[in-house]
Nucleic acid binder design. Structure first.
Length: 277
DNA sequence: AACCTTCGCAACCGCAAGGAT
DNA sequence: CATCCTTGCGGTTGCGAAGGT
């Protein structure tokens, strides 16, 4: 299994690694250690780019990597970590030192995600799949918004989890973080009162945010209704998040071990919620 | 046996952060 | 302060294997 071998315009080899190339890379790193990935291939006698060598080493050759089938315990750990960290594979891999982020990501995408869906669990929120009441015109509804008359309520736990997902969803898309955060934090009252959220982007595309799709045009600014953009958090704005910000205490105690930007962002969103209330 | 579809996984690509100059 | 370079990350792709028809 593997990709066809080919050479790019700079004469660098691409595609599947041979056993001989592996041996050369391992021999070089064993003797000289890790260092300048850019210079390494030439010094090691490899016709590869540094990026390719780094990837091969980190995902395949470095010592201590566990390969093969994931155990049920590992799968459970991944699901648990994903519910907290979202698609932050590197962060998840740090909690599972013998597995690479690539391996975890592949296993999630090819197996665990589907398994959750089959079990009626939304792999994004890790909540049981329920229909969200559509409040917008049907022509603009997101493909993930299933119009239904089923009511949708939040427990404190689900509030914390969903807001956690919101923060994770935003932070995992670095290019969107500032935009979304700025809008939310700069004019929150207006955004909520008008039931609209302004999003700017350089791309002309549909972007998925927290499981919902928003349209982004090429003049940097586009608007979309808040409930379309953040369907579940929108309900939180209208209920738990908006009126009962005490639920954040739960989140913070659940999430005390997180020390990175995600927590900062979450606290900012929390502060935003308090301002609103 | 031939063809088609799905699965699993290695590897690539583009982007962003952060350090060096 | 601006620019360049390196590193790291997450999303996506390509392809052989396996399974189904």
């Amino acid at each position: 299994m593997g990709r066809t071998t080919w050479f790019d315009e700079d004469g660098l080899k691409k595609g599947e690694w041979t056993a001989e190339e592996d041996r050369m890379l391992v021999a070089y790193i064993s003797e000289y250690g890790l260092g300048d990935w850019r210079a390494m291939p030439k010094r090691a006698g490899l016709q590869r780019c540094g990026k390719s060598c780094r990837l091969r080493w980190l995902n395949y050759l470095r010592p201590g990597i566990k390969r093969g089938k994931f155990t049920p315990q590992e799968e459970e750990d991944i699901i648990k970590l994903h519910s907290v960290l979202g698609n932050r594979w590197a962060a998840i891999a740090k909690q599972m030192p013998n597995r690479t982020d690539n391996d975890i990501k592949n296993h999630w995408n090819s197996c665990l995600k589907k398994r959750l869906v089959r079990s009626g669990i939304d792999p994004m929120t890790h909540e049981p799949v329920v229909s969200v009441k559509a409040t917008n015109s049907p022509t603009t509804s997101s493909p993930l918004l299933t119009p239904s008359s089923t009511s949708f309520s939040f427990s404190p736990t689900s509030s914390a989890r969903l807001l956690n997902r919101l923060a994770a969803g935003i932070s995992s898309r670095k290019h969107g973080l500032d935009r979304i955060k700025n809008v939310i934090l700069s004019e929150p009252r207006q955004a909520v009162e008008e039931n609209k959220l302004m999003i700017s982007s350089k791309e002309d595309e549909e972007e998925e945010v927290n499981g919902c799709f928003m349209e982004i045009d090429d003049n940097l600014i586009s608007t979309t209704s808040l409930d379309e953009l953040l369907c579940e958090p929108y309900d939180l704005y209208q209920s738990d998040f908006y009126h009962e910000t005490g639920h954040y205490d739960l989140y913070q105690s659940d999430f005390y071990h997180e020390t990175d930007d995600q927590l900062d962002l979450f606290l900012e969103i929390h502060s935003f919620g308090q301002d609103l209330s």
